Simulated scan of single mutants.
Amino acid sequence: MTRFRGCIDIHAGKVKQIVGGTLSDDTNTGLKTNFVATLPSSHFAKLYRENGVSGTHVIKLGPGCDDAAIEALRAWDGGLQIGGGITAENAQFWIANGAEKVIVTSYLFPNGRLDLSRLQQLHDKVGKEKLVIDLSCRRRGGEWIVAMNKWQTMTDTVINKQTLEFLASCCSEFLVHAADVEGLCRGIDEDLVVALAQWSPIPVTYAGGAKSIDDLALVDRLSEGKVDLTYGSALDIFGGTLVPFAACVAWNNTHLT
């Protein structure tokens, strides 16, 4: 059964919701922000903790985010996943500071090419069960290509059955943002949801474009319950008007108990 999973996106030290395709190394050029929180990251971590929204991910979007990330992790020790700038050198630091799992993308793709030695190093550091591989992607023609560096750099890796089956041997979950629709609240990439359900042998969370509480039922139907869903900008706790957080919690409580 599809479940609602939470997210806490941190940019320049604040919890934000950003249109994914506009994020770049130059934070002052072209960035489109849907929401900037006045409350600390710990507020959102406690909200997820109190409502039992497990599998929530904290994503550091660039520099200046470590303090806010640690604050969130300490508010739910052992209950949150952490991503953004994760490497073999610092992965254990984040586990020691309360992360349930670490999420990795760009580190695995130096110069845009998948480096299996780096994947092995991370696996050796934290183990399969504490490793999540982020395969956030952009659509090019009929394919989805893994994108790194804030979704601006295309890699050599295509999301398909062979890729997911191979990488699943080294991690416990996949996280997939559909970067082209991230933050737009115009609907999910239904084709990608179907493909992830068919191809992934391990749990996978989809993020990007969700705009209605009915999207939980839609993803459940499209994926036969194999893909979980994250809401961002549409969620009322992030300034949205389309999806009540309480309704997402109610979905989990009704369908997962």
Results as ranks from 00 to 15, higher is better:
Asn160Lys: 08
Lys161Ser: 15
Lys161Ala: 15
Lys161Asn: 15
Lys161Tyr: 02
Lys161Met: 13
Gln162Ala: 15
Thr163Val: 13
Thr163Trp: 03
Leu164Tyr: 06
Leu164Thr: 11
Glu165Arg: 03
Phe166Leu: 15
Phe166Met: 15
Phe166Ser: 15
Phe166Asn: 15
Leu167Met: 02
Leu167Lys: 08
Leu167His: 02
Leu167Val: 01
Ala168Arg: 05
Ala168Leu: 05
Ala168Glu: 05
Ser169Val: 09
Ser169Asn: 14
Ser169Thr: 07
Cys170Met: 13
Cys170Asp: 13
Cys170Ser: 14
Cys171Asn: 08
Cys171Tyr: 08
Cys171Lys: 12
Cys171Arg: 00
Ser172Tyr: 05
Ser172Leu: 12
Ser172Met: 02
Ser172Asn: 10
Glu173Asp: 13
Glu173Lys: 06
Phe174Gly: 00
Phe174Met: 01
Phe174Leu: 10
Phe174His: 06
Phe174Thr: 03
Leu175Arg: 08
Leu175Asp: 08
Val176Pro: 02
Val176Asn: 12
Val176Arg: 00
His177Ser: 14
His177Arg: 01
Ala178Arg: 12
Ala178Ser: 11
Ala179Lys: 01
Ala179Tyr: 04
Ala179Gln: 08
Asp180Phe: 00
Asp180Val: 04
Asp180Asn: 13
Asp180Gly: 09
Val181Ile: 13
Glu182Lys: 04
Glu182Leu: 05
Glu182Val: 05
Gly183Glu: 07
Gly183Val: 11
Gly183Trp: 10
Gly183Leu: 11
Leu184Asp: 11
Leu184Phe: 03
Cys185Met: 04
Arg186Ser: 14
Arg186Leu: 13
Arg186Asn: 15
Gly187Ile: 01
Gly187Arg: 00
Gly187Gln: 01
Gly187Thr: 03
Gly187Tyr: 03
Gly187Phe: 11
Ile188Glu: 04
Ile188Pro: 02
Asp189Met: 10
Asp189Ala: 00
Asp189Gly: 06
Glu190Ala: 11
Glu190Val: 00
Glu190Tyr: 12
Glu190Ile: 07
Glu190Gln: 14
Glu190Met: 13
Glu190Pro: 01
Asp191Gln: 14
Asp191Pro: 09
Asp191Met: 13
Asp191Lys: 10
Leu192Tyr: 08
Leu192Met: 11
Leu192Glu: 08
Val193Thr: 02
Val193Pro: 06
Val194Asn: 12
Ala195Ile: 01
Leu196Lys: 01
Leu196Thr: 07
Leu196Arg: 05
Leu196Asp: 01
Ala197Arg: 00
Ala197Met: 11
Ala197Tyr: 08
Gln198Tyr: 12
Ser200Pro: 09
Ser200Glu: 09
Pro201Asp: 12
Ile202Cys: 07
Pro203Trp: 02
Pro203Lys: 09
Pro203Asn: 13
Val204Thr: 07
Val204Gly: 02
Val204Ser: 11
Val204Asn: 08
Thr205Lys: 05
Thr205Ala: 05
Thr205Cys: 11
Thr205Tyr: 09
Thr205Ile: 02
